[in-house]
Design a protein around this nucleic acid. Sequence first.
DNA 1: GTGAAGGCTTA
DNA 2: GTAAGCCTTCACA
Length: 941
Amino acid sequence: MTSTDAASQNQKLLLIDGHSLAFRSFYGTPVDVFVNSQGQHTNAVHGFLSTLLSLIKSEKPSHIVAAFDLAGGTFRTEEYGEYKGGRAETPQEFLGQVELIQRLLEQLNIPSVTVERFEADDIVATLAKIGQQEGMEVEIVSGDRDAFQLVNDTVTVLYPVTTGPSKGIRRMDPAAVEEKYKIPPHLYPDLAAITGEQADNLPGVPGVGPGFAAKWINEYGNLDGIIENKEKIKGKKGEALREHLDDVLRNRRLNRLVDDLELPITLADAAEFGPRDPETLNELFDELEFRSIRQRLAEVFSDLAQAAAARIDISVESVQTIESAQEFSDFVEGALAAITAAERPVAVPERLARALVLYPVVDEDAAEAGNAHEQNLTGAVLLGGARAGWIKFAEIDAATEKALSDWLADENQKKIVFDTKLNVKSLAARGFRLAGVVEDPVLSSYVCGHVPSARRRFFEAMMEDLTDAYLRTEFPKAEVKESAQGELFSLEAEVDLEYVALVARYIQELAYALHADLAEQNQLKLYEEIELPLATVLAQMERAGIAVDSTVLAELKDHYNTFIKQATEEAYRLIDHEVNLGSPKQLQAVLFEELELPTTRKLKSGYSTDAESMADLLTRIDPDSKGAQFLLALQMYRDYTKLKQTVEGLQKATAEDGRIHTTFQQNVAATGRLSSTDPNLQNIPIRTEEGRKIRGAFVVDPRTVDGQQYSTLLTADYSQIEMRIMVHLAQDEKLIEAYESGEDLHRFVGSEVFGVAPEDVTPEMRAKVKAMSYGLAYGLSRFGLSKQLGIPVEEAAQLTVNYFKRFGDVGRFLRGTLKEAHQDGYTETMFGRRRNLPDLGSSNRARREAAERAALNAPIQGSAADIMKIAMINVAARLEAEGLKTRMLLQIHDELILEVAPGEEEAAAAVLSEEMSRAVELRVPLDVQVGSGTSWHEAGH
DNA sequence: GTGAAGGCTTA
DNA sequence: GTAAGCCTTCACA
């Protein structure tokens, strides 16, 4: 193979018929969504760029050229005045968009070629020929069928289909053309000459379509052959052909593409595409008011840049074992100096230029034996650049431990830590305090929109996913070898130093890439002022846990069990046999076959047996019937089984210290909320009296631990925080006033919507507007509202109309939120937290509408989450600053639970309610309700 | 053992 | 209609 062959081997030339793609994009992208504030429509520009980016990503061209038509005549109009005549006038909204596309292409360094008196097609044909001669693969993006004549083994036409079900790019290779037209591509112009081309205003032979044209071509070889044998063609169609032969010949002259034009560019000019100057490009995007697509563009081109650059090895140079205080300080100094010296794929962000990776290493054996909520540490890896140090806790003297301890607690010694919350806990268990964490990939990736799926929340999976996404390489997995017995076991019992140091190096490179992404997305503030400090607060809460009274739990379990037994026996008696009441499948057989009850809503297989369906069934059947009695027994069985399971879960989760230590997930909820697992303490029952009893088992710790006692539990919750945020964001003066006056909001809204005095608002009216108001924050539809309230859809629709008539600002706010979300592809909370919603662009209606509801809710729910997080940080800081021993234990979205030290009751209540209500200043007051008692049940009253 | 389906709890 | 987590059953490895 010669060197030229090698060079051209992977070269691919992408040719774009600019006007054609612009037009296709115009009709394939909603026109009313893409308008900038100057009133310039930009939908064609957006669609064009979007297609271009997908093509660059999927086709990986080495060269790109766009060809455009010029205004004014071409050699074709000179020959035939009506060529392309009779077209509808260009839509008003399309005007100016081609110029914008050309400016965009210029910024992307993609040549836009025009030639006087010729069309874009001719330029494309010329370039296709040149590319082919150079041995390149050629792909032509064009919605003009004339381009099909260029198709051969190395030239493909990518034909955009912008509407209909088969939306996307159709790849027209020789086989595809032949399949569609039953003739080889080079004969396509012969066929088109006969049938004519409506789009070009070229009439063909009347009554002859592509079927007959193809038949003739196959019979006589080509158009010339047909003309030679024209007398042999019989019937009306033969007659019509002979009559319109001049048209056919003219069509054939006009649809022949010219492939030997003189062009103002060479192929070399097409090879250097990519953003020219980020600032100018951003200015153009600002002008277009495009947001989300910038990210896509950056991704596409950073992929290219990374693929083009030689892959940089992520490796560790040396691992030094640190055994003395002197070695420790020498190492820290050396590692800090090594940061900038190391070779790496990503530049070091300035804020991380003097930060070392801290990677505490878990003792696997001890971890399995000990309790799960704290890891047992065997030592720690420190790393700067490619230099690693290893400190084994068991093998250092007091002076070394002191040096390490001081370094960990010094907030001026900056650290990069993967999972701050976990490591603050683990280090605390060993008596170390951790401060100065400036980067945590768990949190930065979350803020950047990376929400790990439930199954990929563990360390290795996250490292794999983030390494793939940000470093474009593979994360090396821990080695697992087979033992002689064939069992799999990890070799990490004896710490594999080389490996853990390498992991630290990957954490470092991820930190750099993620931190840069944070800065780019303008989210450093949210990250540094909320998420990072919150991690330490949460670590303290998890470490504290909440005390439970195991006697109460045991009694509750017995209590619930008696009802379960009663319900089970009653159910069996009614149907004369046993059945597993926990099995929906078996229940279906009993209810709908044996008892022949009316059917409920359909599921994938069978009919629903859920509580709502059962309640509905009860209203439809004779209350004295066997069926009704069975349903009542089932309801009781379900209610009490659920409660018993909850109690059992809590019993299992109670640690040796008599407390339950939940884990707060800080990086899994799409809106910015926390979640709680192992066990979930955010869904402890409250709505029924029987369920509420479980809250009585959560108590203030009766014991004295390390000389510390506690006297009460203190709870505080925000009242109607999401409604208040909606009113604030919508700036609805009437609702703001209602909140300021301290009036019952739903009563006020009810009086407005139903046009009665506030005192005349009935409970039904109040319930309706309350559901409506909350529905708004959930992106409600009139169908959802009608179902919720059990009223006809028309009444729900009328209610909505009346609501927005009175509170127009709320409607405007919601519409504006949706429009912005569509434009940007994401929503933002008051503090700039983003939620990406790629499904807003889905062609699947159900998915799109679900994304729209999420878009309406995310800014509201997310802002509430932000506010609570700020309050938590401030509460923790105030408690510490005032030297109080009172501590925070739980957060349940809009509620905080504190354990109060004796004598601090008043001070703690003041701190809590003050910090919660002043976490943010809104146009409406943030009411906080406080309660206290010796149990959660009592405090919640 | 694993994963989906169905069901239920919270804010 | 939003956002979560956890339980049991059942079919499949």
